[in-house]
Simulated scan of single mutants.
Amino acid sequence: MSQGKGNISPNGHLFTVEILIEETTNGLAMEKLLHLLNTNTVKDYQILKGIDLGKLIEVNKKKDSAPSLQTSKKAVEAPLAATVPEAKAAISEAAAAIVQQLEKFKANNTLIRLTVIKGKGIKLNLPCRILNYDDSNQNVTVYHVDEKKVYLFKLNEIDDYVATS
């Protein structure tokens, strides 16, 4: 949903919810949540809290610079105070870099090995060429060179990619 009052669709409805996802790590739970939210039915969403990614790195960086127990406690609390816009900016920068790399593969017609994780943990590993990237839906269209078929994946389903030629 758009935030401006003039841009909200008359058929769009905004809900505020809290969702509990059981998983071994915060990252895996976040991945499950993103898979649930990235559908055509959900037009837009904001994750306001619950993002615990990168906090151990920050704790270790601050612990190395000042070994006192008081500083260590602050190092643990400081990442918790990080704002959601900063986290969103970091995620969007990473996504932009991935999209830029995919666009370069498309322009150069580069053969890549794409690893995709579909629903229920199904992992696909395919040699392909990038045909298109749709920014509005975050869909990546690829041509599987062995099967000679075209596949459509969501950007968040892509686990890894490696240029092979």
Rank of each mutant, 00 (worst) to 15 (best):
residue 94 A to E: 15
residue 3 Q to M: 10
residue 84 V to N: 11
residue 106 K to G: 03
residue 64 D to N: 15
residue 122 I to H: 11
residue 44 D to A: 14
residue 43 K to T: 14
residue 43 K to C: 02
residue 107 A to D: 13
residue 45 Y to A: 03
residue 102 L to R: 00
residue 94 A to G: 06
residue 82 A to L: 08
residue 114 L to N: 03
residue 55 K to Y: 06
residue 164 T to I: 05
residue 66 A to W: 06
residue 116 V to A: 05
residue 95 A to M: 06
residue 131 L to E: 09
residue 22 E to D: 15
residue 141 T to P: 01
residue 120 K to I: 06
residue 35 H to R: 15
residue 158 I to W: 00
residue 143 Y to C: 03
residue 24 T to P: 00
residue 26 N to Q: 07
residue 104 K to E: 13
residue 17 V to H: 06
residue 60 N to Q: 13
residue 73 K to R: 12
residue 121 G to M: 11
residue 45 Y to E: 05
residue 84 V to S: 15
residue 85 P to H: 08
residue 121 G to Q: 00
residue 53 L to Y: 04
residue 62 K to F: 01
residue 141 T to N: 03
residue 55 K to A: 08
residue 158 I to Y: 02
residue 86 E to W: 06
residue 14 L to E: 14
residue 76 V to I: 15
residue 139 N to D: 15
residue 165 S to V: 01
residue 137 N to P: 00
residue 116 V to P: 02
residue 142 V to L: 07
residue 138 Q to A: 05
residue 50 G to V: 06
residue 164 T to N: 07
residue 130 I to D: 12
residue 81 A to P: 06
residue 12 G to Q: 15
residue 40 N to L: 03
residue 55 K to I: 13
residue 28 L to V: 12
residue 119 G to W: 01
residue 122 I to Y: 09
residue 37 L to Y: 04
residue 25 T to L: 14
residue 147 E to F: 11
residue 83 T to P: 03
residue 140 V to R: 00
residue 56 L to I: 12
residue 56 L to E: 15
residue 59 V to F: 01
residue 67 P to C: 01
residue 113 R to H: 04
residue 49 K to I: 02
residue 96 A to V: 05
residue 121 G to D: 11
residue 63 K to D: 04
residue 19 I to F: 02
residue 19 I to K: 14
residue 83 T to G: 10
residue 38 N to Q: 13
residue 61 K to W: 00
residue 74 K to Y: 08
residue 44 D to E: 12
residue 142 V to Q: 07
residue 50 G to F: 05
residue 143 Y to K: 11
residue 93 E to T: 06
residue 81 A to V: 08
residue 25 T to S: 14
residue 96 A to E: 15
residue 152 L to Q: 14
residue 142 V to R: 00
residue 7 N to T: 09
residue 76 V to K: 05
residue 163 A to G: 07
residue 156 N to T: 12
residue 103 E to H: 07
residue 148 K to F: 07
residue 123 K to T: 09
residue 163 A to W: 04
residue 19 I to Q: 05
residue 158 I to N: 10
residue 64 D to V: 09
residue 126 L to C: 08
residue 105 F to R: 00
residue 116 V to K: 01
residue 153 F to R: 02
residue 53 L to H: 01
residue 126 L to A: 06
residue 121 G to F: 07
residue 83 T to W: 01
residue 150 V to R: 04
residue 151 Y to D: 03
residue 78 A to H: 08
residue 48 L to C: 10
residue 122 I to W: 03
residue 116 V to M: 03
residue 98 I to C: 04
residue 77 E to R: 04
residue 14 L to H: 13
residue 63 K to T: 14
residue 38 N to I: 02
residue 38 N to M: 01
residue 2 S to E: 12
residue 85 P to I: 07
residue 127 P to H: 08
residue 43 K to I: 11
residue 135 D to P: 04
residue 80 L to Y: 12
residue 88 K to I: 14
residue 54 G to S: 03
residue 138 Q to G: 02
residue 44 D to C: 02
residue 17 V to Y: 07
residue 38 N to A: 01
residue 10 P to I: 11
residue 85 P to C: 04
residue 10 P to N: 03
residue 140 V to T: 13
residue 120 K to L: 10
residue 95 A to V: 12
residue 30 M to Q: 10
residue 156 N to E: 13
residue 141 T to A: 00
residue 2 S to C: 04
residue 9 S to H: 08
residue 86 E to S: 14
residue 37 L to S: 07
residue 127 P to R: 11
residue 6 G to A: 14
residue 14 L to G: 05
residue 12 G to N: 10
residue 152 L to Y: 04
residue 3 Q to A: 08
residue 94 A to D: 15
residue 52 D to L: 09
residue 104 K to Q: 13
